[in-house]
Design a protein around this nucleic acid. Structure first.
Lengths: 222, 222
DNA sequence: ACCTGAACACCGTTCAAGT
DNA sequence: ACCTGAACACCGTTCAAGT
């Protein structure tokens, strides 16, 4: 009859149409809620009220699902329009990256680890290169500079998201415990700076390291 | 009889005594041979000719086993004696890290991700701080500098070990394929530097980025 | 076309039992 | 003290079958 096809009209309650987009979106929220390891094909299917095997009609396998999670997070990065001021532009692009990492901390190791060739993945590289070329760097030096900045950004963001639980800064007893651990190390320089090491303002450290790199790059600028 | 205890004399063929050290050492070689995911408790037990459950008498669980793998790799880092020349010392320490990463590429993500409080894990921090303090940086600036250098090193080494398979440099057809991919992106600056982007001399990039950071730090030096 | 169930070959880990 | 086997509650994925 006219009503026999289930896709017509409102689907049965709790049985929205399964699409690749819904699967990936649910996977992203699942990563953030429960961590990467908790995102299993079976667990994801459970959350979508669907048979585990149904997922395989929309995604090849778990590994490519992780690629698609990465893709979705990368697509969420809002790259700034370059102003022509070298230092500001590098900061703004790096901050755009950082905002995505802060929004999706549990996805970040995925995003920073898998290097994809999609346009979302290449767009940040393109804009950094455009800023470096505009600032006068010849192609080969631009690539070196790009890689140096990217390595720093990756390392800094990885630290930030993996430490965010322990290192939140206002967790006072945590700070004291960490100072105590450092003092127990018997390493003199570590003990000397224990109070500074026990806390970390990730935004400040991010800006500091970027400024170092930019300062040195400015010196090389033709 | 005198011979009834199996621990006396040479153990039965292929049945060496099981110790935490043997388990962790075997785990490290297993990570390097087959990748991190391949190191399962059951698979590791198989390689050691032992019941899977026997491992649990020496190791708490898989997660702490991964910590102990990290520990073993960290313990293998041979830190240099500082010479008093700031630039050289930072390079030498970073290179010591890099050598460990090159020796244990598949363990490296583990080592760079898990921040442990053991003396092996703290020793590199201590020596970097000593070099920075010796160079005249006050405690708080020394910590900022430490974190900037560490972020760069982590990002650079992570890229190196994760790209090493695809990016070996002499793989000519791989280079050509990558240039073709970049050219297909339709992003102008990416296309412009495609030949430089398609290859990567990790050692050179490592030194370049470190030099940038050191140059900027020298400028701040009191 | 899309979804499903059973099945296969795995996991980490607990627990009670062996020597 | 150290090792083991069976068992539990999971995995990802293939395949043949349903509608």
């Amino acid at each position: 009859m006219a009503d026999s096809t289930p896709r017509r009209g409102r689907p049965a309650a709790g049985k929205a149409v399964l699409t690749r987009e819904r699967i990936v979106a649910e996977a992203v929220t699942m990563v953030e809620e429960a961590g990467l390891d908790a995102v299993t094909m079976r667990g994801l299917a459970r959350r979508l009220n669907v048979d585990p095997m149904s997922l395989y009609h929309h995604v090849d396998n778990r590994d490519t699902l992780l690629d698609q999670i990465t893709e979705l997070v990368l697509a969420g990065i809002e790259l700034p329009r370059p102003t022509g001021v070298f230092r500001d532009d590098v900061h703004a692009i790096a901050q755009a990256f950082r905002q995505a990492a802060v929004r999706h901390p549990h996805c970040t190791p995925l995003v920073l680890t898998r290097q994809l060739g999609s346009s979302s993945a290449l767009a940040p590289t393109e804009i950094v290169l455009s800023v470096l070329r505009e600032a006068g760097f010849p192609p080969d030096r631009a690539v070196h500079a790009l890689r140096a900045v990217l390595a720093f950004v990756v390392g800094a963001l990885l630290r930030e998201v993996s430490a965010s639980s322990t290192f939140s800064g206002d967790n006072l007893s945590g700070v004291q415990r960490r100072v105590a651990e450092l003092n127990a190390s018997e390493l003199p320089h570590l003990i000397e700076v224990a109070p500074q090491l026990a806390v970390c303002d990730h935004e400040e450290e991010f800006a500091f390291g970027l400024d170092l790199l930019i300062t040195a790059l400015e010196l090389q600028r033709p």
